[in-house]
Amino acid sequence: MWQIWKKVNPRMGIQMATTMAKRHLAKAQDHNNSNMWKKLTFMVATPAICLCMVNAFVVPHKEVEPEPFVKYEHLRRRTKRFPWGDGNRSLFHNAKSNALPDGYEHQ
């Protein structure tokens, strides 16, 4: 198509050819960027996620004793009851590591 423009208006043909070359280069760069991110996903992110899963679920972790409970007025306030359970425990409450306003459940 640009060859026709080159015959009709030589300056317009050069501009059109330059524009088409820029578009082609931009498409090639987009393709290279997508390949780079695809490789990073499968070669870096996926193994990193697998290593984190192994660390979380397979590697044994030693039990850590909780710190002694000290009742501070500004911590563990319950101005309004939680809408689940007995209203005193948070949604992701862990009896071994999270204290209630009165102290730990298991000591």
Rank of each mutant, 00 (worst) to 15 (best):
E73I: 01
H74M: 04
E67R: 08
E73M: 00
R77L: 09
A21R: 07
Y104N: 00
C50L: 11
N55G: 14
H74G: 02
M12H: 08
M1W: 08
A26K: 10
A56K: 12
A45L: 11
M53E: 14
E63S: 10
Q15Y: 07
M53P: 03
L51K: 09
C50D: 11
V44H: 11
P47E: 04
M12E: 15
G85R: 03
V58I: 13
W5S: 09
F82M: 13
F57D: 08
E63F: 11
A56D: 09
R78H: 10
E105K: 01
N33K: 13
K7Q: 05
N98R: 03
W84R: 05
E73A: 03
V59E: 14
M43G: 06
F42G: 14
L91T: 06
L51R: 10
E65W: 00
Y72V: 04
K27W: 02
D86H: 08
A99V: 01
R11L: 02
N33R: 11
T19L: 06
T79H: 05
K80D: 06
C52N: 13
M12S: 09
G87R: 11
M43S: 06
R89T: 02
M1R: 12
K6T: 05
D86C: 11
P83R: 01
R23C: 11
M43P: 04
V44G: 02
A95F: 10
H93L: 03
N94Q: 09
F57Q: 13
A48M: 12
V58L: 15
V44A: 12
K96C: 00
C50Q: 15
I49D: 14
E73L: 04
I4D: 12
A45S: 13
S34P: 03
T41M: 14
S34W: 02
H106W: 05
K27G: 00
M36G: 02
N55K: 12
L40T: 06
A21D: 05
R23E: 12
W2E: 14
N94A: 03
Q15M: 02
A45V: 13
L40P: 02
D86Y: 06
E105G: 02
V8W: 13
A21S: 07
L91Y: 15
V70N: 09
F42K: 13
R76H: 06
S97T: 15
M43Y: 08
G103I: 01
Q29K: 15
M36R: 15
E105Q: 10
P66A: 01
N55A: 14
L51Q: 15
P83C: 07
K22A: 11
R77T: 04
N32Y: 14
N88I: 00
A48C: 09
C50I: 14
E67P: 02
I49M: 07
L91G: 03
M16W: 01
A95S: 14
K6S: 11
V8M: 08
N55M: 12
L51E: 12
V70L: 10
L25R: 12
R76N: 13
R23Q: 11
R89C: 05
P47F: 10
L91M: 10
